[in-house]
Amino acid sequence: MMETLHRYGPDLLTGFGFTLLSWALGTVLGLALGFVIEIARRFGPRALGYPIRAYVEFIRGTPFLVQLFVLYYGGPLIGLRLDALPAGILGLTIYGSAYFTEILRAGFDAVPLGQIEAARAIGFRNTTIVMRIMVPVMMVSALPALVNFAIILTKETVILSMITVPEIMFQTQTMMSETFAFVTPILILALFFWGFIETISRFGRRLERRFTHYLIDRT
């Protein structure tokens, strides 16, 4: 047991590092891309609406695993030659952007129209309206859904192991196939993930409370 841990401990730790890295980058870039898409849908030419809807429907209607396969194994055919890790992060970004866009859309829809009209009436530019009025108001209503989806993305990172990204699941599977011990490692990994998700959910709930505490106090 100690020997196995000594032999594979560093690999597992590196694996967890890659899990965290791909999750963090995937979430941040996905949110950024989702924001750009939503702004384009809201303020761009009307013709953009259909391709954006098709994009969102396609990403949300197909399994993440298949999207990764298209990107990683199909990409080279159209000149997109990526290593496993960048492909995985790009996959998470694209996958996340479609969901984040929808969450942001609902959030922006909930911003009272009067506030936007008032801002426009006193001469705010579009950028100012978005950054100073819409985003802060939207954050309050959309934050729980955003946090929730960021947590869902943590669980999706294990799927990156299927395209050989060396994250924790991949490292565990390597260890399992080399030591012929299957049950204990996978159960430990399950418990580890359970604890990890519980921790970040708790952190997420605290973040939500910080942003919305005045709403809860009022009602």
Binding site: V158, I159, M169, I186, A190, F193, W194, I197
Partner: peptide
């Protein structure tokens, strides 16, 4: 809900 389905 806390453990990824792949691991389950």
């Amino acid at each position: 809900r806390g453990v990824p389905l792949l691991i389950q």
